[in-house]
């Protein structure tokens, strides 16, 4: 394919993905907005006012970056895992397999689709948070780079999950048993300074902690970890997952007999 044809194929996949999640907006866009509003009201306003400061900021301001990241992570992952798995399930993946689209374009298209949803929701939640607190941004580039790369990383994760999944149960195992706990324990709601030494050490093994803190650094200028280490780590994970996903696609794992 010529590079222009490849670009057309890439747009086609991305547009199809965006069309899908906007068509079912009540399942994709609305729920995170509702949940996040509840978090803001309950944790930020009601409980937060009694907690006082966290990491040098009032509690509401402290959790906003974490909640935005939580929404971005969950939705980037969910978009790709459910879209790609349902393509497999309905066999419409065959439309791509018979066509000359190179594997890396398929991957890029799906990851971009997941990022489109993750980042739109991130933006919605950010706008929503402005109704509850004032965000003064410490470093816009840091904030944007972190959220974009995190969204890409979890879209990749969703893609690999969908390639491996053979039934609908398989697409909810990772979000429920891995992503949710790691996000809750990833410093969204508290600074790990509060934890005893041992648990601080354990927390540092959680990759999501780095992403949440990198993003929080971009907004507030405070972080439990070095934000550049966070970025480096995300990049290494992305490279690893891209390699895994492309290898699986080349073998036709779960999509070609």
């Amino acid at each position: 394919m010529t590079s222009r044809a490849i670009l057309t194929a890439y747009y086609t996949i991305v547009i199809r993905e965006i069309r899908r999640f906007t068509r079912i907006w009540a399942q994709t866009l609305l729920p995170p907005v509702v949940t996040m509003t509840l978090y803001f009201i309950i944790f930020g306003n009601l409980i937060g006012s009694r907690i006082g400061e966290m990491g040098g900021f009032d509690y509401m301001a402290f959790i906003v970056p974490g909640l935005i990241m939580m929404a971005v992570i969950t939705n980037s992952y969910a978009n790709v895992v459910s879209s790609f798995f349902s393509m497999k399930f309905q066999r419409s993946i065959e439309e791509l397999l018979v066509s000359p689209v190179p594997n890396w374009v398929i991957l890029a298209g799906y990851v971009s689709g997941g990022m489109a949803r993750g980042l739109s929701i991130g933006l919605l939640v950010t706008l929503l948070s402005l109704a509850f607190t004032n965000l003064s941004i410490h470093s816009l580039p840091m904030m944007i780079v972190t959220v974009v790369l995190t969204s890409a990383l979890f879209s990749l994760g969703g893609f690999i999950n969908a390639m491996l999944a053979t039934k609908f149960d398989d697409i909810s195992i990772v979000p429920t048993f891995v992503l949710t706990p790691l996000t809750y324990l990833g410093g969204v709601f508290y600074s790990i300074d509060l934890l005893p030494n041992f648990w601080q050490g354990v927390s540092l093994l959680n990759p999501i902690l780095y992403m949440v803190n990198g993003f929080r650094f971009g907004i507030l200028g405070v972080s439990d970890v070095n934000p550049y280490v966070s970025l480096g780590m995300i990049l290494v994970f992305i490279a690893g997952l891209v390699f895994v996903a492309l290898t699986m696609l080349a073998r036709g794992k779960g999509i070609r007999h």
Binding site: M1, T2, R4, A5, I6, T8, A9, Y11, T12, I13, I15, R16, E95, L96, S99, P100, V101
Partner: peptide, 11 residues
């Protein structure tokens, strides 16, 4: 039209 897009045919 999506299928055509996969073959690189513009919209």
């Amino acid at each position: 039209t999506t299928q055509a897009g996969y073959y690189g045919i513009p919209l």
